[in-house]
Design a protein around this nucleic acid. Structure first.
Lengths: 214, 214, 214, 214
DNA sequence: GATGAATGAGCGTTCATTCAT
DNA sequence: AATGAATGAACGCTCATTCAT
């Protein structure tokens, strides 16, 4: 059970990477994120963003030269900051354990990531939506995430398979089921907010059993 | 974008005027679907639709008074036609069986639905994307789909639970996991086309085991 | 004295090249030309053009995708149509004469061109102004005009120099003085309209004497 | 662009506050001049000016309240300082001579002015361009320059005409040809830099012969 | 005095929608 | 029914100008 969890830490360090973004620009980013999540990127106008952030429209463009850049600025810290540090952290804590059960893995993955999903529903929703619709987002995301999975998750899966702890399916399929099940929680969150605590154990049980060897 | 006419209104009028869709309008619908799936609804212009359909821009508006109505017309037959008949069919075939195993259920659901997903990837992708982004689509979809599940799927689940064939989780959670797992295949399809045949057995096994009683 | 003058003819043929430009687009072009001449390209808004042309702002963009393209559309027929056919015509009529005096040349050049300047003051003023300020206009104009001069005017000058009819200065310098003197009439026209008839003889005399051999 | 404050007003206030221009403002003026000449007034942003001058954007506005005033400040010293003193000088030196030949006049005018053109190409180019495009610049320039010509140049021309040294054309026409010929050198300079030394004698010869009596 | 972040009017441009043909 | 030129509201974005520091 990885309790040295670092979502907050990761986020902090990402924010630090951003340099000292002045407060108005922070408000622009925050407003963009909320509106993109609520209405989608294309349906959000820069006027709305400015109004929500309480700044003039020109201010939106001080740091970000285009609306597309604003989308990138909203997603980038997650894609290239939070996500990697999260997965890297996870790998460091999990991979090293000598005796790793399926339950250990699933629980670690799901538990952490559910909190992550809950706390970052907005970004993730924007990410999912634009991923489905914008090839540039796909091309930004895939080369970031795929290697992470391949280097951090797949070796662990392979070890578990060798140990008879995990069913012998292709790694990408196992990842698909894990991610898909968590994604379902994201979509469900669009309908109604839900405390993540109640879902965790059930979801862990579902995936753990689903991936047990025959 | 969303003006006075909500998608619901549009939906009504679409439903009212179906049946005798002339070929040019069919081409408009087909072009809209493809483009909406490729680029999203908001990023698609009526000019693109007209060009792809091989008609004049004005022709797009002969039957569908607004672009929103076009979206409704693309989704409507699916949401209120294909989906219900599918679930109804399923219910008729499954519910009546005296002895129903978990495998029977899952296999029936998944197998059919996977072909369904493959053949309707475009609509489903549009549906998923706009569902995440447009509240009017959500408000159109939910009251259509929820009762279907409640009346057709949930009783079956309850029967299986009673028979000890299924784990005793809330129906909506079980539905969430089933739908989520299938949805993962939809998202995966955005990355690369994949023959559905290869996934079916694995996915059935995953869900079947995941939902087995303790 | 080249009286088979073809300014009108040239313009007609250029207009024909334009295909059948619909009347509203003609009005847009005309309005653009007048406003560009009056206020300069940068100081003219598309709103002004639309208002002057009596069309909606969107109509300005039906044929010309950008304001820059509008400038090109206003200048292009002159630069690549009227000008060449004018110079070509001139060359055909002048070069062939066995015995050509300096006066014949200058009179032919100036007389025709003064009418040309008067009738096309707007375009020429735009051309001069933007030539001074926009490198893209320069790069469009120079490769069009320089070869014309080199192939049509310079040989004639050389023949006259050989015959002792013309002072032995470099061709480009002679062209500079001729063009500069005519240009002065263009600039003068900005201050006050003036009938060209009165200037012609004086200007011809000035240039003719100025270019006489020692 | 041109709001309530016309260039005239600006001009007045510029004139009133001259004398003690601090170095940063000098740099702003210099940067403005270069950029206006390179790209034209309208195509130059205050940001570019600030960057080129190495100052903050706000500093540009410390002394000059508007961009129009900056244009006025760039042109003012030239129009009301350099130009008059130049013509005045010339008049003082030329007019007093008892025996003045056409050559003396032309040579004096052209020789001096060619160096002047070369050294002030930037201002002159801005002046010419904006003269063609901005009526307020025209209205500023004309009442400054016309009297200068009328009081200093025209009497000399008249005296030469009386002496049979100069052709009997209207003074303004003679001035037009002289200025036009020099202007041609300015336009030529836009295409390629050229040492003025080589042009001088030829240009003097051209004008001198062109203006000789019959 | 100098700075540069902030402003917002207004620009060029797009595009859903209309309508004369 | 079908066309596509025309419309104009509204978009993303620019930039002259202001002002708190």
């Amino acid at each position: 059970m990885v309790k040295e969890m670092t979502i907050q830490d990761a986020f902090q360090s990402v924010m630090a990477t951003r340099g000292d973004v002045p407060p108005k620009q922070q408000r622009v980013l925050a407003a963009s994120l909320v509106l993109f999540a609520e209405q989608g990127f294309s349906n959000t106008t820069t006027k709305q963003i400015a109004a929500r952030a309480g700044v003039a429209e020109g201010t939106v463009y001080r740091r970000y030269k285009t609306k597309d850049e604003l989308l990138a600025a909203v997603l980038a810290p997650f894609v290239s900051g939070v996500l990697p540090s999260l997965i890297g952290d996870f790998a460091n804590n999990i991979v090293k354990r000598d005796y790793l059960t399926r339950h250990d893995l699933i629980a670690a993955v799901i538990q952490d990531r559910l909190h992550f999903i809950q706390e970052n529903r907005d970004v993730l929703q924007v990410l999912l939506t634009e991923f489905l619709v914008r090839s540039d987002v796909r091309e930004q995301l895939i080369p970031q995430v795929m290697p992470l999975l391949q280097h951090n998750l797949y070796p662990v899966l392979d070890r578990l398979k060798t140990n008879g702890e995990l069913i012998d399916w292709p790694d990408d399929r196992i990842a698909q089921f894990m991610i898909g099940t968590m994604m379902s929680q994201l979509v469900r969150g669009v309908l109604a907010d839900e405390e993540v605590e109640s879902v965790g154990p059930i979801m862990i049980a579902f995936i753990e059993k689903g991936l047990a060897p025959e």
